[in-house]
Simulated scan of single mutants.
Amino acid sequence: MSVTEERGRITARVSSSIAEKLQEAAELTGATLNQFLVQAALEKAEMIIDREYLIRYSRRDAAMMIDLLENPQGPNAALTKAFENYAQKVENGVLRDSTESTT
């Protein structure tokens, strides 16, 4: 049994000069007008989506990131305290190894 994907319909009203230009471009690429429009719209949509999800850094941002990678900061007071609390719980048997049985 074959499964078909549900399709939607998109319509647009354009002037005859725009329709003629789009038809000519479609013919020059060897596509139907519908194929041409869908492909052009999809390419534009992907470009916009990619642009919006792209992370942009200035030279200053990039230099800061490189400096942080090359010269990492030590743990702050909160992280040190959290590690001490964890170590104490492990030492007191409060935290068990995940491989131990809980029964």
Results as ranks from 00 to 15, higher is better:
Ile18Ser: 10
Asn85Ala: 09
Ala26Thr: 02
Thr29Gln: 13
Ser98Asn: 09
Thr102Asn: 12
Val3Glu: 10
Leu42Tyr: 08
Leu33Cys: 01
Asn71Gln: 06
Glu24Tyr: 10
Asn92Trp: 12
Pro72Asp: 00
Pro72Met: 03
Arg13Cys: 01
Glu52Ala: 13
Thr80Ala: 14
Asn76His: 07
Ile55Asn: 01
Tyr57Ile: 05
Asn34Gln: 11
Met1Ile: 11
Asp97Trp: 08
Gln35Phe: 04
Leu28Asp: 10
Glu43Met: 11
Gly74Met: 04
Ser2Ile: 11
Arg13Phe: 04
Asp97Lys: 08
Ser101Arg: 15
Ala12Glu: 06
Lys44Pro: 00
Arg59Tyr: 04
Thr4Tyr: 04
Lys44Glu: 15
Glu52Phe: 05
Asn34Val: 03
Leu37His: 02
Lys89Thr: 01
Ser98Glu: 11
Glu6Trp: 01
Gln23Lys: 11
Val14Ser: 03
Ala25Gly: 15
Glu46Leu: 12
Thr11Phe: 05
Phe83Trp: 10
Glu52Met: 09
Arg9His: 04
Asn34Lys: 09
Ser16Lys: 12
Leu37Met: 14
Ile10Thr: 07
Val38Trp: 03
Ser16Arg: 12
Ala62Gly: 02
Asn34Gly: 02
Glu84Pro: 00
Lys89His: 13
Glu46Cys: 07
Phe36Pro: 00
Met65Leu: 15
Met65Arg: 12
Ser98Leu: 09
